[in-house]
Design a protein around this nucleic acid. Sequence first.
DNA 1: TTGCGTGCAAAGGTTTTGCATGGCA
DNA 2: TGCCATGCAAAACCTTTGCACGCAA
Lengths: 137, 137
Amino acid sequence: MPYNTKQRQAVLRFLEERPEEALSACEIAESLRQNQCPVGLATVYRQLERLEAAGRVHRVDTGEGALYQFCAQGGRRACFLLRCESCGRMIHLDCVHLEALCRHLSADHRFRVDPRRTILTGLCDVCCGEEAPHGTA
Amino acid sequence: MPYNTKQRQAVLRFLEERPEEALSACEIAESLRQNQCPVGLATVYRQLERLEAAGRVHRVDTGEGALYQFCAQGGRRACFLLRCESCGRMIHLDCVHLEALCRHLSADHRFRVDPRRTILTGLCDVCCGEEAPHGTA
DNA sequence: TTGCGTGCAAAGGTTTTGCATGGCA
DNA sequence: TGCCATGCAAAACCTTTGCACGCAA
């Protein structure tokens, strides 16, 4: 069982307080440092690895490195993330349609989706409007 | 407009001939070299970047680097990918339920999913069985 | 006291970039 | 002929790892 070090608490608490943000290991380490609670980058990575394995955080692989986000459901419910590929915004989605889709994939396609690792990428409402050809508000 | 170099053709044709495989830039370069059609790794990356922008290939970000896969639909239809996080297998999914989900997200959540950039991660039928607690066949 | 956790620095791997050369149009 | 594309090597970047020390239990 893991020791309850202050670094461990710091990383988890930091993400817990920002459930709507997906952050890189670097950003987390940098912020903690400024918060008078410095944690080495390697340690941040090691804690994130554990937190992900424990189902406490989402991990989002992007082309520019992984992002980590607190998982409010503790991995129990199908809580998906939407990621805007234009502005990078992360949007929580706890929708009955997604749960239905998961059941369908499991039953009919024999594939068990892991909501914590699955990110639906696309365009959010704001960016969708911006990219429309008929007018840049 | 881009020049039609033999390197460009080689990369696209290579992916076109393997519509079921998601490959890394390194694997592509290595295979082309063995096929008597060597293309520099940097060039492979540059061509993949363009092909993705043109909607000809999927790009899958994984923790161990990006994978690229031919996009049979040319980006027109909602053709999703399932990725087994255990064995790495990529499974095409062209399912009416997914199209319905996309329409729902667009209409009710104002989010426009990009199927080419979206990968549903989870466990395939084989690996799902393996990880079950009751017996390792 | 035991042994996991930490920090630092170095290594590992992927992807990008600079620059001179080559090849398509 | 003009200019984009290529190849090579170096750089940039993220992430992991080795090792000695520190700290929770």
